[in-house]
């Protein structure tokens, strides 16, 4: 069904990348000096290419200059935290604080991640361990959404969420569409589409198949002996699942959660489509607001500070979970 051929066994690709021993003690040939110098020049050019945008944005973020840069600076002349302070104080012209943005981003990322995981884990176990009628058909049904680009269902989800609205009809009568409507036009109290809850539900639609796939791929690699032993000792299937499988799968549950978190943290398309109130904006949406046509008034040092703040949690998670994440990415990420 899916391409699982990307070196599923090579779990530690990231770690090996750092630690693999290629220092050449095996064969006694030393690198001639002229070649060493040539290669060092090449590698340094690549370092410059990689570091250029990073140093550029770091330098900008530490600058107290609120005017746009007139000349190229890639080494900080000063370490000023003014831009960070301003971003934390009031990121954009919108009436929303940084803490609210952070809370919205976290609510969405964590909420979607946890719900997707809880719903996915039993299904992944069923697909991984049991033979039953319709197994193939049901698996294709679950995995078909993985083929679609992430925004493939944006239109119907937008319209369906938009049809869940709560109206105050006056006289203490409250109507919930689409089940009830006011006799005359009421006052709109709540629109599911324009809420974090609505966005979150829509995002689960994309996150769930990914979680099922990722967990099934991992459960497939756990040997079944323990489960068999427990079954022979008289454990029921539920006990096997909760006492044996879940604890064994715990590390992978965490990895799947964090992989999801990285994705949802950057989720832009659905929130940008659904949410209209600045109070429910996320950090990714704010970052978008700080560049391009909407950003004429935003000083670039503030934009740079914001970029670094948005990047920080993702970078930290990556570095903390290097080895697990790369295998998960290569196994699981066909989706854009």
């Amino acid at each position: 069904m899916t391409s699982t051929s990307i070196t599923p066994k090579k779990k530690n690709i990231f770690v090996r990348f750092f630690t693999m021993n290629t220092s050449g003690e095996a064969s006694g040939r030393e690198l001639p000096l002229w070649r060493q110098i040539l290669l060092q020049v090449l590698t340094l050019i690549i370092v410059a290419q990689v570091m250029f945008p990073i140093m550029y944005v770091v330098t900008l973020s530490f600058s107290s200059e609120s005017r746009r840069p007139s000349s190229l600076e890639i080494f900080p002349k000063e370490i000023s935290l003014v831009a960070y302070k301003q971003v934390l104080d009031r990121p954009t012209a919108n009436p929303v604080t940084f803490m609210e943005l952070l809370r919205n981003s976290f609510t969405l990322s964590v909420g979607v991640g946890i719900v997707a995981l809880v719903v996915a884990v039993t299904a992944a176990y069923a697909f991984s361990r049991f033979k039953f009628k319709m197994r193939q058909v049901l698996m294709i049904l679950v995995f078909i959404p993985l083929l679609m680009p992430a925004i493939g269902l944006a239109t119907p989800l937008f319209l369906l969420m938009n049809s869940f609205r709560v109206f105050d009809c006056g006289d203490g009568i409250i109507a919930i569409q689409p089940f009830l409507s006011c006799a005359s036009t009421g006052k709109l109290l709540f629109n599911m589409r324009d809420s974090l809850l609505g966005v979150g539900i829509a995002m689960i639609s994309g996150a769930l198949p990914f979680a099922v796939w990722n967990l099934k791929g991992y459960l497939d690699t756990i040997p079944e002996e323990l489960e068999e032993a427990a079954a022979i000792d008289g454990a029921g299937p539920n006990q096997v699942f909760f006492r044996i499988v879940l604890p064994l799968a715990a590390p992978q549950l965490a990895v799947t959660f964090f992989l999801g978190f990285i994705g949802h943290w950057q989720e832009f398309a659905l929130p940008w489509l659904f949410l209209t109130k600045p109070q429910s904006y996320t950090l990714a949406m704010t970052l978008y607001n700080m560049t391009g046509q909407y950003a004429n008034a935003i000083p670039w040092n503030r934009f740079a500070a914001m970029a670094i703040i948005v990047a920080a949690p993702v970078a930290v998670i990556y570095i903390a979970l290097q080895k697990q994440i790369v295998s998960g990415l290569t196994l699981g990420g066909v989706k854009g």
Partner: peptide, 18 residues
């Protein structure tokens, strides 16, 4: 190696805006 891996760990939306 530590430097070359940096672009992988930075979110693409940040890279694109920068």
């Amino acid at each position: 190696r530590a430097i070359y891996i940096l672009p992988v760990v930075i979110p693409p939306i940040v890279v694109a805006t920068v």
